[in-house]
Each structure stands twice: as structure tokens, then as C-alpha cells.
């Protein structure tokens, strides 16, 4: 690692307490992200993707039982900070979030312009007028007409609301934005529009993205690298080009094969069974029960193997 990466996550863990026992939502997650890059975190529902977003931004519910690991943001470790330092120096200053269902996360009784300006007032202590100027600038970047500043969320369409939520995450000029399923509730045409906006922003504002999604096809538009998540763990990291051509982990392969493709006469496949419960995840490889390539070794937990520049958590790649 010659150059300092923007973000390096090592062994990030987030467990929740429930009446039935601890839920291992995020378990030893690792990946890296460079400047002006986008990493896609792929996985099925319930694999811990959104918990990962919460863990990164430290937006934790009360029932957390375990929260540790190391996260280096531009070289500084942020997990060791106390909550106030974190709030002052990291959240929305260097890293922000576009929450899931961002369309419905706007306050219905505040004008959207005020909402977009709010992080500037709170985090940078600027006057409201200045903040509104900044908000107007952001509206232009994400492609919302500036006169929408005075509108309320219900007056905007789904795609416009999503853009406003993105503007709110970008207004304080953070270097990293976490997008949690930014387009899953939108139509194809609106999806394509939002992704074009994100691509442009990556260049214009020199911002990096962590894109959390289950939509493999759409995510390929933006991705520079890919991290595949299964049952709370990262099972593969790779650069986007080789991942979309030929993923390594059996889970990634089956996930890719299940995507219906246009004008292709290949029948999409499916993965039998369902992901294991994160309450009592299986010992050994967590995918073993659904894996067509399992063999005796899979009852032990595989370590992470390096294959060229990629990393795979699967015994098949033991060399």
C-alpha cells in the first residue's frame, strides 16, 4: 500500500442484542476505497448491508452489543473517537449518508431548501442565508431546479426527492458519501437519471461513494470496485471490471447468473434455499449450505485468500 487510501475498513463488527440472542449483522467486514472511487457493496436482503452503513456513520440503535474494528479515513482511525469528536469531525464533515428510502426520509413540514441547508448551519456554523446559497449550488449539481428550494417534499416526484436527499449529503462537501439503496424504489428511467447524476458528481466534486445495493445490473454503471456481502461477512472484493466479467466466489457467481439479461437467450438461474439467520450463523463457511461446490473443508471457516489483486473468502482458492 504505497498510496494512502481514502478509506480502509478492517474487521468492522456490529452485533445487536435481541430477545433471542445476539444478531451478528456485520461480522469482520473489510475493504478499501481510493479517492474519487466508488465501491459497490452487493448482497441479498438481510445480509447486513444497511447495518454496515449504520456502523460506518455510527448511527446506532440502542441494542448494540458489540461494535468494534478499525476504520481509517484518510489515515486517521475513527472508531476510537468519542461520540462528540466523531460528530464534530467526521459525520457529515468527511462522510455523509443518503439513507434508504431517502424519498420518504425528508421532513414533510420543512421546505426542502431549508433541509438541504441545515447540515451547513449545524456543522459549519454558517448563517442560514449563506447555507441557502450553498444549497442552491448543490441543487444545480444534482439537477433540481433552484426554485424548488421553497417547495415541500410532497410537491416533488420520487426522483426529485432522491436528488434532494443526495444534495443534502453533499452540501458540506464530504469526501465520502454512503448511499444506501439509492434507487431501489424508483423506475428504470429515473434510476438511469440518478446514476448519471452520481457519475457526474464523482468527477465534478471529486467525491467517493460507497454504494450499498442488491441491484447488480444498475450498480455496474458506477462501480470501480465491488465488495460482496453474505450473511454479515465480506466474501469477495475485486475491481469492477474483472468482477462483472468473472466473479470468483461461488456465491458471487450464482448471484451474477441470477440477473436476467436483455436479448440474451440464457435462462437466469436461482440460488436454492435462503441466507442463514444471523442469530445463529453456521460455523464454517456461511454459504456452504447453498453452495454447489462445497466439499469437506467447507465445515471450517475459510480465511481470506488473495487471488491476484482480489480477495476471496472461499476454500476453493487455497493455494
Amino acid at each position: 500500500m504505497s498510496k494512502e487510501k481514502l478509506l480502509r475498513i478492517e474487521n468492522l463488527t456490529l452485533h445487536f442484542n435481541t430477545q433471542k440472542g445476539p444478531v451478528q449483522a456485520v461480522d469482520g467486514v473489510f475493504f478499501e476505497l481510493g479517492h474519487k472511487e466508488a465501491v459497490v457493496v452487493l448482497g441479498e436482503s438481510g445480509c447486513g448491508k444497511s447495518s454496515l452503513a449504520k456502523a460506518l456513520l455510527r448511527l446506532l440503535p440502542r441494542n448494540v452489543s458489540r461494535y468494534d474494528g478499525k476504520v481509517y479515513l484518510e489515515g486517521t482511525e475513527i472508531m476510537g473517537m468519542d461520540d462528540e469528536t466523531y460528530r464534530r469531525n467526521v459525520r457529515w464533515i468527511r462522510m455523509s449518508l443518503v439513507p434508504q428510502a431517502a424519498m420518504n426520509s425528508l421532513n414533510p413540514v420543512l421546505k426542502v431548501g431549508d433541509q438541504v441547508a441545515e447540515p451547513m448551519v449545524v456543522h459549519h456554523g454558517v448563517k442560514k442565508e449563506e447555507a441557502l446559497v450553498q444549497a442552491a449550488k448543490m441543487f444545480q449539481h444534482v439537477g433540481v431546479p433552484v426554485d424548488f428550494l421553497d417547495r415541500y417534499a410532497f410537491e416533488l416526484s420520487g426522483g426529485m426527492r432522491q436528488r434532494v436527499a443526495i444534495a443534502m449529503a453533499l452540501v458540506t462537501a464530504p469526501g465520502l458519501v454512503v448511499l444506501d439503496e439509492p434507487t431501489s424504489a424508483l423506475d428504470v428511467l429515473t434510476q438511469a437519471n440518478i446514476f448519471n447524476v452520481l457519475k457526474r458528481l464523482k468527477h465534478e466534486l471529486e467525491v467517493s461513494f460507497i454504494l450499498i445495493t442488491h441491484d447488480i445490473a444498475t450498480s455496474s454503471e458506477l462501480a470501480d470496485s465491488v465488495a460482496v456481502m453474505y450473511a454479515g461477512q465480506i466474501v469477495e472484493t475485486s475491481d469492477a471490471r474483472s468482477f462483472f466479467k468473472e466473479p470468483l466466489h461461488p456465491y458471487s457467481r450464482m448471484l451474477m447468473a441470477s440477473v436476467p439479461r436483455l436479448r440474451a437467450n440464457i435462462e437466469p438461474e436461482f440460488i436454492t434455499g435462503q441466507p442463514p439467520s444471523l442469530l445463529h450463523p453456521p460455523t464454517g463457511c456461511r454459504f456452504a449450505d447453498r453452495c454447489p461446490k462445497r466439499f469437506s473443508k467447507c465445515s471450517e471457516e475459510p480465511p481470506v485468500f488473495n487471488v491476484e489483486s482480489k480477495q476471496v473468502k472461499c476454500w476453493l482458492y487455497e493455494s
Binding site: 416526484s157 426522483g159 426529485m160 428504470v188 428511467l189 434510476q191 438511469a192 437519471n193 446514476f195 448519471n196 441491484d215 447488480i216 445490473a217 444498475t218 455496474s220 454503471e221 462501480a223 469492477a240 471490471r241 462483472f244 466479467k245 451474477m256 440477473v259 439479461r261 436483455l262
Partner: peptide, 25 residues
Amino acid sequence: RALMSAIPIPDPSIKRERIILKGDV
């Protein structure tokens, strides 16, 4: 045609011309 061009293809090596529709329904 616009709908077709908006369909994502999971292969970043394919470059396509996209028809972007303005505005909302």
C-alpha cells in the same frame, strides 16, 4: 426506445448511447 436504453447491463465494458428523458411523467 427510452425505456430500453435505460435498462442497466451488468458489464461495465459495454458503452452505450442512452436516451435521457427530461422531466417527470
